[in-house]
Every structure is written in C-alpha cells, then in structure tokens.
Simulated assay, not measured.
Amino acid sequence: MHRSRVILPALTLTALAFFTQVPAGGAAPAMEWREVFHEDGSITQTLTPKAPAGESTGFLAASAAEVSRVFGDRDPADAFDLVFVGDGYTRDDLATYSANVKSKWEELSAVEPFASYKQYFNVWQVDVISNESGVDHDPARGLLKDTALDMGFWCQGRDATTERLLCVNETKAKEYAASAPQADQVIALGNTTKYGGAGGSVATAAGSNAQAGQIAIHELGHSIGGLADEYDYPYETYTGTEPRELNVTKDPTGAKWGSYLGRPSPDGGVVAPVEGARYYKFGLYRPTANSIMRTLGKEFNSIGRDAMVAAFKAKVPSLNFEPAPGAPIIVRPLPR
C-alpha cells in the first residue's frame, strides 16, 4: 500500500543519529550522536559507537505475534496507525505489557495536538514474547537477558557513559510492528521500571516508568513532525545555511514564522525568536523559550503543533485541517 507523507521545509535529523563520524583509516568504530534524557526533563547529547545493523527475526516469529486493537476503529487507509511492540515481556508478563501500552497511550493522547485529533488514530498492540523478563543491563550493568528485541540500557553496552539510553534492535521491532494492519509509527516499550528511552525510527521508553512516556512524545516530534531539537547543547556558534526544519531559523527577526509572531503559544509566552537551538548556543533561534522539543514535560509550541497536525493530515485524507495563514507548511503526496 502506498500512503502519503508530509514533506516539510525541514531536514529531519533523528534523535538516534544526527551524524556519523568515521575516523581516518577506519581503525576506530564510526560514531553517532544520541539524545540523552534526564529525569529533570533536560535533554543533552552524547557521542556513542554507531549501532550495528539490526539482525532480522527471519519473519517467522514476527508473523506469529498476536495483534490487538487498543484504540480506534478506523480503516487503516484513513487513520494514523501507532503500533506498540514490547521487549522483555514473557507470556506471564503480558498483563503488565497491556497495562504499559494503555498508560503510555493515555499519556500521549492527553498532550496536544494528539488530544484534539486522537479520533483519527488507531493504536495497535503487538504481543512480542520474550524468553526472559526484563532488559539488558538492568538492574546491573553486565546482566544480560534473553529477549526478542535485544533491548538494553547503556545502549546495549555500546556506550560507556550514558546509562539511561535504552536501545532496541530496530529491524526486529519493525518486523514485529508489521504484524499490525498498518504501522505509521512504532514505539518499543521495555519491561523495566528504570527511567530511560531513546529516539530513532523506533522510539523506546521504559514501560513501567511513569516519566518515560515524555521521551516518546518528544521523539514523535522528530519522527512525525520533522521538528528539530530546540536545546543548545553541545556547540557554540552556528555559521551554516538556513536550516530547513520549521521550528529553527538563523534569522533573528523570526520572519520564517510569519503570522505566528507575537501570538500566544501553547507552551507559554508568545512566539518570538529566542537564541539557542538545534545544538547551538548562538546563531540559531527557536520560536519560544521552552517547548517539549527543548525540555520534556512541556507543550509543543505553535509551530510544532501545526507541523504535527499537518503530518497527521498527510496520513489521514479525511482529516480537516488548515494551517494558520502564512504558515510555512507544505504537504506533498509521496509513495511511502
């Protein structure tokens, strides 16, 4: 099936890998930047060894996974289909997994713009059965578990400094998600109470940790809305060309945001250029002081919210949405 998708004037730099560095001569492993989410809501980055290509399930286990509908009754051709997969849940843990999926969806659907448009969503739960409960390196580093999706803290042992990075084999996660009728976005939950998560084409979060759902919401800003991060770590001054992401600009007047300027924003205050964005302290501007693309637990700002709804619209033909006059959002049908 071919579906339409949003093309925004934004270069989507995923939270999983912003760029890769390969040392001269290839002696050392390639490196990639990953977002690190702290319990106070702040977000930073760390440079870690690049993830190896994910091993396939061989499709046999994935095709046998049971799929249930958690929310929604729409035809997948006219819906945004969100698919949860789990790791470290044995057959005896499925009640916990179901409760985790329910709580994460309730948290996500309480946040705008999901709250206003949740009637356009289908939410699916794929029961991924692991041989052991839990995830790697939990509760102690070096403790490995036999699980279906290879989830683990310390980014599956690749990162020596960042405990809270909860990584997953994305290839396997997507293969299981394909058991659902349609998968527009995949979220992998780990069977753990320990705070953690990570971004990428598959967002991850600790299933039984109440704070970890905010990580998934932030990551959906990247993967659904094509939004840039709005925090200013770790670089100093930006000297490049105008970023294509909607929510950052090098223009101190903020003209990129047109009719949004001076209007109240859902995350507080009004839309006006604030210096410090997209990993740079100087030379780049964000629309507001502190949206969820900067700090977990906050709201999307006006620009981010409209970008998300435009992305919903690209997946859901019947959704009625008109962006603000002058909003720099372009919707273009492309094969999925």
Rank of each mutant, 00 (worst) to 15 (best):
H2S: 12
R3S: 13
V6D: 00
I7E: 05
A10W: 09
L11T: 14
L16V: 11
T20R: 05
A24E: 05
G25T: 08
A27I: 11
A28M: 08
P29Y: 02
P29V: 14
R34A: 09
E35Y: 03
S42D: 01
I43A: 00
Q45D: 13
T48D: 00
P49W: 01
K50Y: 06
A51D: 15
A53I: 13
A53W: 04
T57E: 02
F59Q: 14
A64D: 10
V67N: 02
F71D: 07
D73E: 10
R74V: 10
P76L: 01
D78S: 06
F80N: 14
V83F: 02
V85L: 02
V85K: 04
G86R: 09
R91M: 10
L94P: 03
S98Q: 13
K102L: 06
E107W: 08
L108M: 15
S109D: 01
V111R: 15
E112Y: 03
P113C: 01
F114R: 08
K118F: 06
W124H: 09
W124Q: 11
E132R: 13
G134T: 14
V135P: 09
D136K: 12
H137G: 07
D138F: 01
P139R: 04
R141T: 11
R141W: 03
A148V: 12
A148S: 14
M151Q: 13
G152T: 12
R158P: 05
T161W: 00
E163M: 06
E163F: 01
C167W: 00
E170S: 12
T171L: 00
A173Q: 08
Y176A: 06
A177I: 15
A177G: 09
S179P: 07
A180E: 09
A180L: 03
Q182N: 07
Q185H: 13
A188M: 03
A188T: 14
G190Y: 00
K194A: 08
K194Q: 09
G196C: 05
G197K: 08
A198F: 02
S201N: 11
A203T: 14
A203S: 13
S208T: 12
S208R: 09
N209Y: 01
A210S: 12
G213R: 03
H218K: 07
H218P: 06
S223R: 10
G226H: 11
L227R: 08
T239G: 01
R244G: 15
V248L: 00
K250Q: 12
D251P: 01
P252C: 02
P252Y: 01
A255Y: 08
G268Q: 10
G269E: 07
G269T: 12
V270D: 02
P273K: 07
V274L: 00
E275A: 04
E275W: 00
G276H: 03
A277N: 04
Y279F: 12
K281V: 07
L284M: 09
Y285D: 02
R286C: 03
M293H: 09
R294N: 12
G297T: 13
N301L: 02
D306A: 07
M308C: 06
M308K: 09
F312D: 14
A314M: 05
P317H: 07
P325C: 07
P328K: 11
I329D: 01
R332D: 07
P333Q: 06
